[in-house]
Design a binder for these strands. Structure first.
Length: 284
DNA sequence: CCTGCCGCCTGCGCGC
DNA sequence: TGCGCGCAGGCGGCAG
């Protein structure tokens, strides 16, 4: 479940179900799911066997499971990945990629991923913060997120505001849905040049990003179809609260104008033509 | 250095 | 029915 609220929902569920448990076996069913683990599937399974998971941590859309060895399992869900807790008796999912069983015979951890953009890997010595994801910025819900640094860095860029929101090295956790939602709340078009935004405008936008992410976590994330579920296979309900994403042809919840869809970065962007007018001068 | 585009995958819904 | 097309919430790598 790609964006921060969905990943955080998974993190919370995982933390409850796997913290303190000792791994017994690891079965890699599809090599692509561990392609980022360069030493390969045999090594992946061997280095995890007998290890105890001590926590479940997150930065942006990345999760990692610190182990008692000081290593960590990095997990990224990509576009369609799921981490599910399942009893051993549950039938294998069609897109089951990795199965982890525990020494206590409790529920299994399964990595299921239709499109295989996601994956698992082991980070050597990565229990604190895997070096593989050290380039990812803190997310805006992280207490150590530096607001003024973000404002300065964003205004120092020469790009469009939506691109900046999706730049995980600048601010992490925001994806296509929540970028559109925050821009709608801030009444900014995604093509607005970052270097022409005032400091207060960027601070307001950041506050809206925080609000929408926080509200979505409370709702258990956004679910459009069976691909996006928590560790128990349950859907979130933030889709009912969306004001922009997917609302092409429907009236703006603020002014009633019919919402539009535009192509942007090879994906769809939704906005209100009246509340979020296109910038007069295109970026150049 | 920076920005922006491409490729990686599978499956679904739509129009013809 | 079948087929091709466009679309999908992500990221890393690389070209310019």
């Amino acid at each position: 479940m790609p964006e921060l609220p969905e990943v955080e929902t998974v993190r919370q569920g995982l933390a409850k179900w796997v913290t303190g448990r000792r791994i017994d076996t690891v079965e890699v069913r599809h090599p692509r799911a561990i392609r980022r683990h360069v030493p390969g599937d045999v090594h992946f399974a061997a280095v995890l066997k007998g290890r105890t998971i001590t926590d479940v941590a997150r930065r942006g859309k990345y999760l990692w499971l610190p182990l008692d060895s000081g290593d960590a399992v990095i997990a990224h869900l990509g576009m369609s990945g799921q981490l599910l807790m399942q009893p051993a008796t549950a039938e294998d999912e069609v897109h089951l990629r990795v199965r982890v069983t525990f020494a206590d015979d409790g529920p299994q951890l399964r990595f299921v991923d239709q499109r295989t953009f996601g994956g698992l890997s082991v980070s050597e010595g990565g229990a604190e913060l895997p070096e593989e994801i050290a380039h990812i910025a803190r997310d805006p819900l992280d207490p150590l997120f530096d607001d003024e640094l973000f404002v300065a860095r964003l205004r120092g860029k020469h790009t469009e505001i939506k691109r900046a929101l999706l730049d995980q090295t600048l601010i992490s956790g925001v994806g296509n849905i929540y970028a559109d939602e925050a821009l709608w709340r801030a009444q900014l078009h995604g093509a607005r040049p970052t270097d022409a935004l005032t400091r207060p405008a960027v601070r307001r936008l950041l506050a809206h990003v925080r609000d929408v992410l926080s509200e979505a976590i409370v709702a258990g994330g956004t679910t459009f179809d069976a691909l996006y579920v928590n560790v128990n296979g349950e859907s979130g309900y933030f889709d009912r609260s969306l004001n922009a994403y997917g609302r092409e042809g429907q009236p703006c919840h603020r002014c009633g104008t019919i919402m539009r869809r535009e192509q942007f970065m090879n994906r769809s962007s939704y906005s209100c033509p009246r509340c979020q007018p296109r910038p007069r001068l295109p970026l150049r």
